[in-house]
Design a protein around this nucleic acid. Structure first.
Lengths: 373, 373
DNA sequence: CTGAAAGCGCTTACAG
DNA sequence: CTGAAAGCGCTTACAG
């Protein structure tokens, strides 16, 4: 074993000023330093770092000791540069203050962490400009894949350069039809179908469909799911029970008022989203009807705030953490396989009865004709 | 101008297999490629990339054209390696499903993004093991600073190696007393003081303090704030109005039951956290008293769920986004100055009257003696 | 204003 | 099993 050589580290052409380190701080140790202390070559240290069993036990032991002695920290950036790979994936979320997306990020993080990757997370706050900047930034940082819940109004063109660059990406929750990338969407039809079954199970027979506009895919899919469940029970969803409106709270309120004016009016409704469901509850209350207890209201949990604001509201939602895990797995599979998939994947949907402020609706039975308590 | 030279790129000792790229994918262009196409040297391209005005307009133009033509993407990892700096900061959060911390992350992200940094976000889910792993991982990824909301039970020793390494860190929300790092904590005393003033302003004169145990710093600080406000109004907080308990929902319920048994009982209380406040409301309801309307309840919003579950509950909380922005600024200041601060910073606290399910409490006036409506 | 060269901290055939 | 050398994609004095 040759004695450890003092390496000179000449500060030749590229004298490095070590920006980012406090003036007096000692230089961070590198594998060369470790090799020197352990009396082996850099290669050997590199093998030890990556747990290659080829190294002799003695050498390994000396290397490990040297590492702890020096407080060595592996520089993954340098390794990534050399290997032309990266151990980071980018996660771009349209609104992290929305707990749905926060939970989604948590689910993603679980998988990403346990796969030894690190998550670059950016929040776009529904800003298309910020989304563009963030995508560019993450590409520069060399992420090996990206998960995006696009901001509203994102077009195929916005994401095409990214996809064309060969970057594995998964688009989640909000679809961008026609994009050649993996897209993971909730099973709207199944959710609406189960909502219908749920209401039927509670004894409802006249069920309305509120909010949204008929020329959107999401409207048609959700409506179809409801119709399917009703048809199974031999019930036809009457057109007059189908009331389009803005997919907003105000829209829901107006739609509910129209619904309540019908003869033989429904005793329950399915709303296109939770904002509309809020509005439907507003409309019921202003008519002196208690939502939930006297009139069944279910909304798709798109805006993901239903749990707080409407006590007795039943929501249809995806388990966001499970969705996050699924999405991350789909991405990592592509990353490790070195190829890009273009599948459309749907995710299961659950009916969630929120037990928030008031008594949950399911405790009250079929209701609808029952006078206020 | 010499004609563009074909660089050979010999695959000598270190033939790079290009892991992480699909088989047929073309190599990503580098500044050498851009230089070749633009007919300039690498140095010039580098100067253009970083917007150095020293480059002639003609050269700049040709470089920019070459970049768009090739679809060049800056490799920040390589630049960081060379500059021994990094444009990433690590954010380690104990529970991202808690909307308080999600909002915190959003605030951090805002500052981090606009400073041109990228955020590595990891969720520990209150696991000390995961926290240790994540800290190690982020160090390996070369973050230039870290923001941590530590998991419960984190000790000074857990974070000391990190601090000793010279890494700028900011510990937020949960204090680790004795750690030589910037720590940003809510102003508990001021919050309690303002809660007291708020209750006094509503006409309350007998105010209780519920939950927690007297041997904790947080208990003493919050209690002191309440006492201060009462003293200003010439009121002494009676010891019997101070009821310690587990800082849980069950604890709060038990404490409230004890409080209600007192002669000349209080008409309002301040709770050590929102879980206790939930419990206090439970206790009130089981005694037939409507919380908020008939009995003032304020809780510190530590668990950050108050807004959903207790309609009429007043909470004392920090604006988490503002806190996040503040924290990020404190970190970035250290990062760019290349030094490490060890200050203890407190953040302002606000009284928030939640307008969730029921009528907000402030609409009901002093209350407390008023019979149930 | 531009080019050639060195080096950031790693990994990887290759020769011993 | 170990060592010397080349190179990942950048930046930076330095010489022209």
């Amino acid at each position: 074993m040759t004695p450890a050589k003092k390496k000179k580290r000449p500060m030749g052409g590229g004298a490095v000023p070590r920006r980012g380190r406090a003036a007096g701080m000692p230089r961070k140790p590198t594998i060369s330093d470790v090799a020197e202390v352990a009396g082996v070559s850099k290669s050997t240290v590199s093998l030890v770092v990556r747990n290659n069993p080829i190294v002799s036990d003695g050498a390994r032991k000396r290397v490990l000791e040297a590492m702890t002695k020096l407080g060595y920290v592996y520089n993954r950036g340098a390794a990534n540069l050399r290997m032309a790979s990266s151990s980071a994936i980018g996660v771009i979320v349209n609104d992290l203050t929305n707990s749905f997306f926060a939970e989604l990020a948590v689910g993603i993080d679980m998988i990403v962490q346990s796969a030894g990757f690190v998550q670059l997370l950016a929040n776009t706050g529904e800003s298309i400009d910020r989304q563009r900047e963030v995508i560019a930034s993450m590409r520069e940082h060399g992420v090996s894949g990206m998960i995006i819940t696009p901001v509203h109004g994102t077009s195929v063109e916005d994401l095409k350069p990214l996809v064309d660059s060969g970057m594995p990406i998964v688009v989640a929750v909000r679809d961008i039809p026609g994009l050649h990338a993996t897209r993971v969407m909730p099973e709207n039809r199944k959710g609406a179908y189960e909502a219908g079954r749920y209401l039927l199970g509670l004894g409802h027979r006249r069920i309305g469909f509120l909010g949204g506009f008929a020329d959107t895919a999401v409207f048609q899919t959700r409506l179809q799911g409801l119709k399917d469940s009703l048809k199974e029970a031999g019930i036809h969803l009457e057109d007059r029970f189908m009331i389009p409106s803005n997919a907003s709270r105000a829209g829901g309120s107006a739609a509910m008022r129209r619904l309540l004016q019908l003869e033989e009016r429904p005793t329950a409704c399915l709303c296109i989203n939770d904002a509309v469901a809020f509005g439907a509850c507003d409309g019921l209350r202003s008519a002196g009807i208690e939502p939930g207890r006297e009139f069944g209201v279910i909304g798709f949990d798109d805006v993901a705030e239903a749990s707080c604001a409407v006590p007795a509201l039943t929501t249809i939602s995806v388990d966001p953490q499970a969705l996050g895990r699924r999405v991350a797995q789909l991405l990592l599979r592509q990353v490790s396989a070195g190829r890009v998939d273009q599948e459309l994947v749907t995710t299961p949907i659950r009916l969630v009865v929120r037990e928030s402020c008031g008594a949950p609706w399911r405790d009250t039975g079929p209701g609808g004709e029952k006078p206020a308590g």
